[in-house]
Design a binder for these strands. Structure first.
Lengths: 229, 229
DNA sequence: AGGAGTACGTTGTCATTACAACGTAATATA
DNA sequence: TATATTACGTTGTAATGACAACGTACTCCT
């Protein structure tokens, strides 16, 4: 287990827990490491799960098969990250997704009940672990909510304004750098890249903003202009 | 405080905690009740918050003001529900939203540190409270993720198939009832109602599904038909 | 029975957007 | 230096969806 300390200590789930504490914590959780090969099914849809997964090495895909059997990849989980934690904590009766090994990988499975149960030695780092779980779930929540705000706008221009306004507010300046290239932004906003590119140009032509590469600047409207709902 | 027991015991945050336990728990949390009047600001954007809010009576709006000052209502929180819990647990430096009283209301503010800190008497229900927090966050997470899957599809038909496929899978049958009327579904999928209505009719005409009111039935394609990405 | 209100489908128009295709500049690669 | 490769903007076209307007059926009143 020692050889995993590097990945464990930098992961969000085990942050603020040192190596000494980790050793007893992992024992306390009776965490088990399982090895999978490419295309192995780690969790299968419809399964009742009681553990959360932690990727030690390799990577896994969270996939969903629809009514007609078409498969969609919902997420790719890399070492240091967890999967299925939301379904486990939400006590979803049956898993609506499957988790598949993309390549050979080592997965640590941690029983949720063991996480929640105060251990007899009432270790303080156990507490840290739970706080980390809350942190992970809450952060994902905030991310999803923000993205949802942008995406639910009906028009591309509105989506862009919603996103750009957020960035401006975040960076406390009308001038700011966005953390995406065009394709990345298009994927994030769930729109076509070239449509996005075109809309940005149009907005610039209309004097609503200026940009160069990833550097944007929002302009105050010269006169009262109806902008979005 | 006694008069709030009814709303507290049925709320997700305090579920599985009985009245006796609640009394000591609330003392342990040093939960404070504050009264607000219509339009009062409960939490202000940019504020550093360390508490989560719980609506005892009345209702509050979570609102966001964009770069130009346009206000959007993100959520309406009713009695028994919490607000700002994600931002608090995610330790977001400064609140990106404001919380406003829609009408006269009573709000219980619970300090997050007090929730997380094991109390000296190590009450077991304190533990239940934390588990409930995890449950609330995880459930919202699952909801948001599902909705995101539908909404990120580029075309209305794809959004519909994504949603309907989920319902079919959920109800384990090609025939199922959806929990929305047309307007509700349109709002959920962030599309226009009449456009949705029209697309449904077209899909029915093409033999992809049949429906009557909220009762839907998905059809297997007679021949291999490319349906969606 | 006679409204009022609501839910839903339909139609037509116009704006928006996806998609494909291509040009260009910048960057990396050999 | 020559050559891919990538990122981005542009253009045109066809598909798509938003929006408004309207008809019909249904429910709820009284």
């Amino acid at each position: 287990m020692k050889n995993y300390f590097e990945i464990l200590t930098v992961s969000p789930l085990f942050s603020n827990i040192n190596e000494t504490e980790l050793t007893s914590l992992l024992a306390c959780l009776s965490a088990k490491v399982a090895v999978y090969r490419k295309n192995d099914v780690i969790f299968s849809a419809e399964e009742k799960i009681t553990s959360i997964g932690f990727v030690l090495s390799g990577s896994v895909h969270v996939v969903q098969d629809d009514f007609w059997g078409n498969r969609t990849i919902l997420a790719c989980i890399e070492p240091g990250s967890t999967f299925a934690e939301a379904f486990t904590c939400a006590e979803v009766a049956r898993l609506p997704v499957s988790v598949i090994a993309v390549e050979s990988c080592e997965i640590m499975l941690i029983n949720y009940a063991k996480i929640m149960k105060t251990c007899p030695s009432s270790c303080t780092f156990h507490h840290t672990l739970i706080q980390n779980m809350l942190y992970i779930l809450a952060s994902k929540n905030v991310m999803l909510t923000k993205k949802m705000e942008h995406i639910t706008r009906r028009k591309l221009r509105e989506k862009l304004f919603s996103f750009l306004s957020e960035q401006a507010t975040l960076q406390k300046s009308a001038k700011f750098i966005i953390p995406f290239d065009r394709q990345g932004l298009a994927d994030y906003l769930a729109v076509d890249r070239s449509a996005l590119s075109g809309e940005l140009s149009r907005m610039q032509k209309e004097g609503l903003l200026t940009f160069h590469k990833n550097e944007f600047e929002l302009k105050e409207p010269s006169e009262s202009v109806a902008r979005q709902a």
